[in-house]
Design a protein around this nucleic acid. Structure first.
Length: 274
DNA sequence: CCGACGTCCTGCTAGC
DNA sequence: TGCTAGCAGGACGTCG
């Protein structure tokens, strides 16, 4: 489940291979992804050079020359890896971009929650992405973050998953951050004290930084752009540990459903406050 | 305007 | 042993 650290890893892995590469051929499967791939996109992509590969939140932004852009989301199970033409094509490969080097950039996505969107203008792509997202965890500012939490009458877990509050957090890193900040997932944003918001901002930054350093978390399908797995799953303190005991106080870890997502927490370290 | 919830999708697994 | 219901969750549309 690619969240910010996983998407960042994919981008870092692919960037040196994609920068300056020219797309010579595009092949797509008949099955549709979250957005349907328009035939015209394939034609427009051909003979374009990749100028830049960037990430914002969980979105991958590709700037092309002559001017155009390709926006990619990995969804739940999206994998984007580079292959030699003779490599076996894995099942659920939906998009293949052939580069002038003959290498193939293949997008595989079992559950097809991933999406592509082509833009004739890169500026338009950037505007679209910015309109969906709040600040990167790196740029979280305690006071502004607190303001965006305290004005919402929603559980903090739901707020962390909201890409407009902070970009790039998903279920894993939300649970890990809340545990380290000693906040119950159902705690209402409106009830937070400034010190709690600041502490949460700090833990989010720590968690994301460490996870990026370890190339993200592999728990099911995720692989980086080089095909390597992540390693952060070995450092999970709370996520996926239902039935085990809290690493801090030995209390049994519990799961509660918040915003339709299973939320792991320690009932002793993360007590619900008024 | 805001928040809650359903929808998409496939593969794995818990439980009968 | 074999079947199936339920779960995994990112973004977005819809509804109250």
């Amino acid at each position: 489940m690619p969240e910010l650290p996983e998407v960042e890893t994919v981008v870092r892995d692919l960037r040196p291979h994609l920068q300056h590469a020219v797309i010579t051929h595009v092949k797509t499967s008949t099955q549709s992804l979250r957005r349907t791939w328009r035939k015209s996109w394939s034609k427009k992509l051909c003979q374009k050079q990749i100028k830049k590969v960037d990430r914002r939140g969980k979105w991958i932004m590709i700037e092309l020359q002559p001017e155009a852009g390709l926006l990619v989301h990995l969804g739940m199970t999206g994998q984007w890896t580079l292959h030699e033409p003779h490599d076996d094509v894995a099942s659920h490969t939906h998009v293949t971009l052939t580069l002038h080097s003959k290498k193939e950039l293949r997008f595989r996505d079992v559950r097809r929650f991933g999406s592509f969107q082509f833009y004739d203008s890169y500026l338009e792509l950037q505007d679209e992405v910015e309109s969906k997202l709040g600040p990167e965890p790196d740029h979280l500012h305690g006071k502004t973050f607190h303001e965006s939490l305290v004005t919402r009458h929603r559980p903090i877990k739901s707020l962390l998953l909201d890409q407009k509050i902070v970009a790039g957090i998903g279920n894993i890193y939300a649970d890990e951050s809340l545990f380290l900040a000693s906040l119950h997932p159902l705690q209402l944003g409106s009830s937070l004290k400034i010190t709690q918001s600041q502490r949460l901002a700090d833990t989010i930054q720590q968690v994301i930084k460490r996870a990026v350093a370890l190339r993200g978390s592999t728990i099911r399908d995720y692989v980086g752009g080089s095909g390597l797995q992540g390693e952060y799953q070995h450092e999970f303190t709370i996520y996926g540990r239902q039935g085990e005991t809290c690493p801090r106080c030995d209390t049994l870890i519990q799961v509660v459903r918040v915003a339709g997502r299973s939320s792991h927490f320690c009932p002793c370290c993360q007590q619900l406050q008024e």
